[in-house]
């Protein structure tokens, strides 16, 4: 019995990481209706940037965030204004295919620079530390990851609903033309949204790199996890996305408990079941 409870707890904490994968995806879809196929590869890029930073400066991965986050945010802004803004419009093909091309480019650039060997960010003592809670041993790193996920989502929620930046995001999302009339330059607003999304991606990448080993090819899988969390939770609802991540994480750990080969499959099946019975997700945003 304890083993099963343990699986559920591990799954919930894993869900925090998936919510972090999903938050950036959800954010940019909400603001500019863009689905970024390269999202997962950008997470892996952030992990490798963390690797280079920790190796070169000899600092802890958490400190590396101070460098990786601004870099990823800057990259997001440049990417959006230099490339992705040109793809936005009524036709869904250009953004889809351009980000798909971007995904292949990032993946192979990482392969060229870092080779296909799996890497890991060394978090030191925190990786093995755990807190005993009634017969269970809860890892400090997964717990911290979950806490960070909650913090990030609360932060995004605050930015969205309590700041001028968020007001701009919502206005542009509602009606791009009228938002321009208010003096908002949508190209710039989109750039800021992507910058914010990639700042979150940086956090996700570093936490992923400390949790498991990574290689250039695993980006697609992270995109899928993030996407599934978004759909399970309901489009446009950030807290729903966290719930979606948790459901996905629990499905995976329980599946893995039954048979290690079933871990990922169980997550996908949970997603398909939600899609079958609640196509708008479990917690869709209520339109005014």
């Amino acid at each position: 019995m304890t083993e099963w409870i343990n699986a559920v707890v591990q799954g919930i904490l894993l869900g925090g990481l998936y919510a972090l994968f999903a938050a950036g995806l959800s954010l940019i879809f909400g603001v500019m209706r863009l689905v970024n196929i390269a999202h997962g590869d950008l997470i892996i890029l952030a992990a490798y940037m963390g690797l280079s930073t920790t190796v070169m400066l000899g600092v802890h991965p958490f400190l590396a965030l101070l460098i990786v986050m601004p870099l990823m945010a800057g990259l997001g802004y440049v990417l959006q204004r230099g490339l992705l803004n040109q793809t936005l419009g009524p036709d869904i093909l250009p953004p889809l295919l351009v980000t798909f091309g971007l995904s292949v480019i990032i993946q192979n650039a990482l392969l060229e620079i870092y080779t296909a060997d799996p890497q890991k960010l060394s978090g030191g003592a925190i990786e093995t530390a755990s807190i005993p809670v009634g017969g269970l041993a809860i890892g400090v790193l997964p717990l911290l990851t979950f806490a960070i996920a909650v913090g990030v989502i609360a932060g995004l929620q605050w930015i969205f609903y309590s700041t001028g930046l968020g007001r701009g995001f919502r206005a542009v999302s509602d009606n791009q033309d009228i938002a321009q009339l208010m003096g908002l330059n949508k190209a710039h607003v989109f750039g800021l949204a992507m910058a914010l999304a990639l700042a979150v991606v940086a956090i996700a990448g570093i936490l992923l790199g400390m949790r498991t080993s990574f290689d250039p090819a695993i980006g697609g899988g992270r995109l899928i996890f993030g996407f599934e969390a978004v759909i399970i939770g309901g489009l446009g609802n950030l807290w729903g996305t966290l719930a979606g991540g948790v459901i996905l994480g629990v499905a995976q750990t329980i599946g893995g408990k039954i048979d290690p080969g079933w871990q990922l499959l169980a997550g996908h099946i949970a997603f398909l079941i939600v899609l079958a019975i609640r196509p708008n997700g479990l917690f869709p945003r209520i339109e005014h």
């Binding site: 919502r170 206005a171 509602d174 938002a179 321009q180 009339l181 208010m182 330059n185 949508k186």
Partner: peptide, 23 residues
Amino acid sequence: RADQVAHLGIALVPEGRQLFPSL
């Protein structure tokens, strides 16, 4: 662009009100 025109002091009350529903 419209945002540049807005900064010059020209404002439009658009047809059909066009308020931002999320705001």
